[in-house]
Simulated scan of single mutants.
Amino acid sequence: MYVWLRLARMIATAKSRGRYRMGEESRLTFRCLPTDIDSNFHLNNARYMMLADVGRIDIFHRAGLIALARRNRWAPMMGGLQSVYVREIRLWTKFDVVSTIETWEDTQVIGRHRFVLEDGRTAALVLTTAGVYDSRNRAFVKIDDIVAELGSDAQPRPPSAEERIFMDSHAGLRKLAKAQSL
């Protein structure tokens, strides 16, 4: 089952998982298939990112962000990610992708995608930074405004030390990439 079938399954089962509320998690179960593996017969590093996308889209869909974005001509956009692999996910292994919105600051939201084996151990962790771009105003939307429009009164917590390091590293790498594209 390639990404499109996994995405279709996620959308088809979204109602049964209920509306996503800030502070909750998205938990999707997958199996490592032959189309997912590399030459070591374990989950290919690119598949982690693709499956994190499915978890993130699940949150966006169930929270109502996709519908809100379409109405306002907004585009959710990834800024960057960092991943760490601590255990392999071998061929045919069943695992969960547990996705959460951790916190936000101004126009940047931090997401976490934890790949969990059946015994509860973490196989990998992916941190993401993202924002929502308003094409009419040519600017990113403040996350507080989006949260309010979604009908939530959730407040962000201060970023953890690890999240702050990730955010700072992302900002530095982004600055480097922009400087090299001139």
Rank of each mutant, 00 (worst) to 15 (best):
R6F: 05
R9Q: 12
I11W: 04
A12H: 00
T13F: 00
K15C: 01
S16T: 11
S16E: 14
G18K: 06
R21Q: 11
R21G: 07
R21H: 14
M22C: 09
G23K: 12
S26R: 06
R27C: 12
L28V: 01
L28P: 04
R31I: 13
L33V: 01
P34A: 03
T35W: 04
D36I: 09
D36G: 06
S39L: 13
F41T: 01
R47H: 03
R47K: 09
A52K: 00
A52V: 04
V54E: 07
G55Q: 10
R56Y: 07
D58G: 04
D58E: 14
I59Y: 07
A67P: 02
L68A: 14
L81N: 13
L81I: 03
L81H: 13
L81V: 05
S83F: 01
S83H: 00
V84H: 11
Y85S: 07
V86L: 11
R90S: 05
K94V: 12
F95S: 09
V98A: 11
S99W: 12
S99N: 09
V109W: 10
G111A: 06
R112F: 00
F115S: 05
F115Y: 13
L117E: 05
G120V: 01
T128F: 03
G131C: 13
Y133N: 01
R136M: 14
A139F: 05
A139I: 09
K142S: 08
V147F: 02
